[in-house]
């Protein structure tokens, strides 16, 4: 029964994922005083791209063609480990967060290699930046997870520790049980969301200058179905990180309420990203690691606080 519920939630998440990007764009447009693209623009784009032909860069190999598929499937597989709408993932197991982080790493690796395959200096630039940010983001994500894990262990959560126990109404419960420091993890996960999804202030996905991009410059040469996979993959990744964030905030609720509020939570995240993108400028490239470092220090601080109890 529970597994079927999860499958339904999972399909819902996969279906709604491109909507979040529409929300970001709409919020940004409103801030700029424009009406903006339709909310469903990404659906149209993906649908259109799927039925187009592809132009491959000269001299590229199967690595270039396989990159987007691997990246998309990695994000989807990582999403399948998350608790969605209050339903625990049937795939959950102790330590599944390690697999989740490394699946995202696999996607990043494939994207970076696909970018390097073109031999274009711009894509090499993006690949270089993405490889570093990915390496820096991983320990930060783990510091945040470890804070949750140690809290769960010291509060005596009897179940095995997986994403489905840690991001399913656990954290608000901990706040109320004298662990308010976990609220700071919201900031950490927020920064990770921006870093991993390459949004302002880390990366500017809509700028006209390739020199200043990270993610978008790596996928410049994709077209047709592969571009659709790239776009859908990033939409799923955004959904994944937003779900992690909402999973930190939402308490345990009845199924329908939890489903509704977690979807709403993802949309709120998307709107918040839109607001941040409208009011902030991109950080200079060498300041970005400092931002990740800041998130890491906050996470380490929370971890130490939870240990000291």
């Amino acid at each position: 029964m529970n597994a079927w519920l999860y499958v339904a939630e999972f399909i819902l998440a996969l279906a709604l994922a491109p909507l979040a990007s529409g929300i970001i764009n709409r919020v940004k447009a409103k801030f700029a005083g424009r009406h903006g693209k339709p909310l469903l623009q990404l659906y149209y784009d993906i649908f259109k791209l799927l039925f187009k032909g592809e132009v491959l860069g000269e001299g590229t190999t199967w690595v270039f063609s396989a990159g987007p598929v691997i990246a998309m499937i990695s994000s989807v597989a990582a999403l399948a480990l998350l608790p969605l709408g209050g339903a625990a993932s049937p795939l959950a197991f102790q330590g599944d967060f390690i697999l989740c982080a490394y699946l995202l790493g696999m996607g990043r690796f494939a994207t970076v290699l696909a970018a390097l395959d073109t031999g274009s200096p711009f894509e090499g630039m993006g690949a270089s930046r993405e490889a570093l940010l990915g390496a820096l983001g991983e320990p930060v994500l783990f510091l945040a997870l470890l804070a949750l894990i140690t809290t769960a262990e010291s509060l005596g959560v009897p179940r095995e520790l997986s994403l489905s126990t840690l991001f399913n109404g656990f954290s608000p419960l901990a706040w109320l049980n004298g662990r308010p420091e976990l609220i700071m993890l919201v900031f950490v996960m927020g920064v990770l969301l921006l870093v991993e999804n390459c949004r302002i202030p880390v990366d500017d996905p809509t700028t006209h200058l390739e020199l200043t991009m990270i993610h978008e410059v790596m996928v410049l040469d994709h077209s047709g179905p592969n571009m659709a996979f790239v776009q859908y993959g990033s939409a799923v990744k955004l959904w994944l990180f937003s779900s992690l964030l909402t999973g930190l905030v939402l308490p345990v609720m009845p199924v329908w309420a939890h489903t509704l509020s977690s979807i709403l939570g993802v949309f709120v995240c998307a709107a918040a990203v839109g607001v941040i993108e409208s009011v902030m400028a991109r950080l200079r490239m060498h300041v970005v690691p400092a931002l990740v470092g800041l998130a890491g220090s906050v996470a380490a601080f929370v971890l130490i606080l939870t240990l000291v109890r």
């Binding site: 032909g53 592809e54 132009v55 491959l56 860069g57 000269e58 001299g59 590229t60 073109t118 031999g119 274009s120 711009f122 894509e123 410049l220 040469d221």
Partner: peptide, 8 residues
Amino acid sequence: VKRGPVWG
């Protein structure tokens, strides 16, 4: 599938 120059 067509081949074209990489975006430079």
